[in-house]
Structures are given as C-alpha cells and as structure tokens.
Amino acid sequence: MTARTVSYGGGREALLEATVRVVARAGLRKLTNRAVAEEAGVTHGLVGHHFGSRDALIEAAMRYVVERSVAESELESPTGSVDDFARGLVDLVAADPEIQAFQYELSLEARRRPELTRFIREQNDAYRSAVRKALDGMGIGHVSDLDLAVFATLDGLVFHQVTEDRPEDTEAGLTALRALLRAAGAQ
C-alpha cells in the first residue's frame, strides 16, 4: 500500500474514498474500520469519529458515489439533443471503475442483508431521477416509465464495462439507446 497524506479537514472524504476502494476490491464483508483507516492512511478511531457505525459509513459512501456518478456522467444534454445524452458515461466508468463496483457490491450484499435495501432504493431513485430530468430536457419525459427502462439500460451497460472492461461495447450500447430515444420522440 502506498502511504497517503490526508490534509487537515480532508479526513472524511479520504475515508469515503477508502471505503469505496476496500469494498470494490474485497467486498462489503471485508469492510472494517481498520481496513478503511489503513486504506486512507489514518488512525482507525477517525472512522468512528466521522461515521459512528459501519452502516452510517456505508450510507455516507453510497451517497458520496451516487452524487459523484450523477454529476460526472453528463446524463443531461446541455443542448437538449439526444446526441449528447450520457456522453461522459464511458469515460466516467473507465476513469474510476471502483465507484461502480462499490455500488454493485452493495446491491448484491443487500440480497443477503435486507436492511441495506433502503440504500439501494435510495441509490436507484437518485439515478432514476437524474435520468428523468435528462429525458425531460430532451422533450420525452412524458413517456411512462421510460426513465426506468433507460436507467436499467445504463446500469447494465456500466455493469458490463466494469466486469468486461470493454468501453467500446458501452459506447455501442449508448449509440443504440440514443437511436431508441430518437424514435421515442427526442429532439
């Protein structure tokens, strides 16, 4: 492990990023305060200080990655054109696949631990809302449950890129999705 320097006031974010890396690499069952602290290069007491409990740490990390993913995915088209829809998705996944892997690990663990289901619902609701907003911007938000279908498609494309590391397939899928959105009435 490479030694990390955490700047004053940067401990919380460093711990969230470390949480993502630990879970993406070893799974949620290997998530401990010590593992996160070691990954972040801080004392393990800092994890408890910032988050209190493991579930609070998981929740904060989930919100952190969803916020980053939505902001960086460029779902919304600045021009209102379907051609710009999700234009940053391939690069987002390629730049930091651990963020996506963390979310899939959390989703799979929720099957075994139902108390985590609320985190997954919150995560998926945030993504679906971002998709709905993007569809509204393209003039097709009125199509019933289209946001769900588009979100599920994007989620599947991201999953395949994370597991197969074939960004060209993700781009091909996005091209096909954009064609479907055009047919649904986008500008």
Rank of each mutant, 00 (worst) to 15 (best):
A26D: 13
G27T: 09
G27A: 06
L28Y: 02
L28G: 06
R29S: 04
K30N: 10
L31V: 10
T32A: 07
T32R: 02
N33D: 15
N33V: 13
R34L: 12
R34W: 05
R34E: 12
R34I: 14
A35M: 09
V36W: 14
A37L: 12
E38D: 14
E39P: 08
E39M: 09
A40F: 07
G41W: 14
V42C: 13
V42S: 12
V42D: 13
T43N: 15
H44E: 15
G45M: 12
L46V: 15
V47L: 13
G48N: 15
G48H: 15
H49F: 15
H49R: 15
H49I: 11
H50L: 13
H50S: 08
F51R: 10
F51V: 08
S53T: 15
R54Q: 08
D55Y: 12
D55T: 07
D55Q: 09
L57I: 11
L57D: 07
I58C: 05
A60Y: 11
A60G: 11
A61H: 08
A61P: 04
R63N: 13
R63M: 07
Y64C: 07
V65Q: 05
V66T: 08
V66Y: 01
E67G: 11
S69N: 08
V70K: 02
V70T: 03
V70N: 01
A71C: 00
E72A: 12
E74S: 07
E76Q: 04
S77V: 01
G80A: 01
S81V: 03
D83L: 05
A86I: 02
R87C: 02
L89I: 03
V90E: 02
D91W: 05
D91C: 01
L92R: 07
L92A: 08
L92F: 05
L92V: 11
